[in-house]
Design a binder for these strands. Structure first.
Lengths: 339, 339
DNA sequence: GTGAAAGCGCTAACAG
DNA sequence: CTGTTAGCGCTTTCAC
């Protein structure tokens, strides 16, 4: 911590007033005469005073920080999300403290407890799906909100995009393009968001009377590497799908890399629609047709919601859970073959 | 801030000791008997006590935070850097507070002063090149270090990659592939790092007796959009270059997008070597041949250096500037045409 | 080994 | 409008 040495009492002394008056001036509390305001400001300027935020936090019992827990810092989806969360937080006067859970649910809970004592509220972009543990956190007085993920039966607000509707839109688009052999590379099914996307896939197939081929449906952690592996796995099958609905863009990047390496043409040999519309999906090996997760709004609404809840009420008891679900939309690029 | 209610005195009371003894236990200060250790731990467990970090910070005059100032949160270069800085910091027991300067030098200085009072040290990934202002910050007792950028005459450590050597390597590779008409799309020349890369370009040309064609050398902010525009500008020239050394991968992504839109083939119509080797460069429209900036080491060394300086000495006066310069290397992929 | 007391720098009633 | 008086919750001498 920086030690500037000059404190509020130094300012008070120099301005010939008391520390509490300086404090009032600093906090814009009315009823400080114009005259003393001038004197105080002059003293502040002269001494180059900067209030000690730590002391203020201790006294006010609030820090001005929001903790952000993500499973991967350089996954483009979380990166895009961080970007908007940082911006929205700055606008509300909050700083973001970043922590990486590495997708490990134990580590996540531990981090939440530690970070939770240093910030006014937490934003989980990553979250254990264990509602008991999460509810315990609430009982221990930790404030948090979940973004892009949700867990049923947890009494905390969340803001997500509709995975079911998005998944359905993606698959309907492929069907409309004439595909019948549509596979799915999805994220871990314990995460509701990925499950919803898969349910949307199933629903679209069913609606068009296409039976689901379980050989073509595989799941894995949403990383580029896993996307690569699962693509190779599917494309080594004796009967291959002609199209794929991929659970998110990160997986799809891996799929594209596999196709590039094995000289499978996208979209001719394999059409792809994925999910999220991260900023790189436009610039990928083959620009991705994808479902827009409205990441910008996700982050912004998350911050606004949590900040509002913080202001409204300090007692958890009166806090009602807010469930915000955004509608996704289809962004058509080259990877699906309709362009 | 979370209000758990239970404080160190509650623990002390329950354990039948004094608060200061509990504090000693918490801070691993020797000379606490095994017996009281047990009692204290039992009380902590029973009460579910978590120390208040803010109070601790105030008393110890240190926060356990490192502030990170970047010009763009979702620029893949900074994203990769953040990733490694977060990891290295976590290993050292520090949290990262993120702030976005939007490349605005005024905002950057203001943020530095504000954030600087909340953290133990700052890491500038973005930095004004005004040595006077930066040195003023030092005089005001702010601790900081610069990563991936440096400013001459500033008495603060930095860790960077050798831009001159890297630029030279890039251009030499293109020359070796037979190119003579080599252009350069570079970053702002007020930033030493981009200037060094350009100097490397010039040096390589000179070494091979190739005169520099100033029509083919353009500069702009290192964004995808600018890369796009500058590429279009160069490729609309009556006499076009056959190869380009691009100042960083972000610019190169824009160049690739332009080439894609205008149906200029990379590398056949235009060979490209860029700089940084961000994680996405492998997955770009055309996988990029690029100079590896060793981002992982950059971040890790930055954190280790600043943490070490923090431990070594609290008085700025005795702090000596460390200048760490990493050697870059060439990563060959498709965009240069030698693959 | 342990505890009492005095802060860290600021805010928040409450008087005046 | 302004100052006095207690804290916020933890650490840190310095006695014992």
């Amino acid at each position: 911590m920086r030690k500037s040495g000059v404190t509020i009492s130094d300012v008070a002394r120099k301005a010939g007033v008391s520390a509490s008056t300086v404090s009032k001036y600093l906090n814009n509390i009315p009823y400080v005469s114009e005259n003393t305001k001038k004197k105080i400001q002059a003293a502040i300027d002269e001494l180059n005073f900067q209030p000690n935020i730590i002391a203020r936090s201790l006294a006010k019992q609030e820090t001005g920080y929001l903790g952000l827990l993500v499973p991967e810092v350089n996954n483009p989806f979380y990166t895009d999300l961080m970007q908007t969360i940082e911006a929205a937080a700055a606008k509300k006067g909050y700083y973001i403290i970043l922590a990486n859970t590495h997708g490990d649910s134990e580590r996540e809970l531990q981090l939440a407890r530690e970070l939770g004592n240093r910030v006014d509220a937490l934003i989980f972009a990553s979250a254990t799906n264990d509602s008991r543990k999460l509810n315990k956190l609430i009982k221990e007085n930790y404030r948090f909100l979940m973004v892009s993920r949700h867990v049923k039966e947890v009494k905390a607000s969340h803001v997500i995009v509709d995975g079911f509707v998005g998944g359905k839109m993606a698959v309907e688009h492929l069907i409309r393009l004439g595909h019948k052999k549509i596979g799915h590379i999805g994220g871990p099914q314990r995460i509701h968001q990925f499950q919803d996307r898969y349910l949307g896939y199933q629903n679209a197939l069913k609606q068009f009377g296409i039976p689901e081929n379980h050989d073509w449906v595989v799941f894995g952690d949403p990383s580029i590497q896993v996307g690569y592996q699962l693509a190779v796995q599917l494309m080594s099958l004796p009967e291959k799908p002609t199209a794929l609905f991929v659970g998110n863009d990160t997986l799809a990047l891996g799929v594209l890399e596999a196709c590039d390496n094995y000289n499978w043409s996208v979209p001719d040999d394999l059409a792809i629609v994925s999910f999220d519309n991260i900023s790189f999906s436009r610039l990928a090996l083959v620009p991705l047709t994808t479902i827009d997760s409205r990441i910008g709004e996700l982050g912004q609404i998350a911050v606004e919601t949590i900040v509002q809840q913080l202001r409204e009420d300090t007692s958890v008891l009166n806090q009602h859970k807010r469930e915000i679900v955004l509608k996704p939309s289809l962004v058509i690029r080259k990877s699906c073959g309709s362009l």
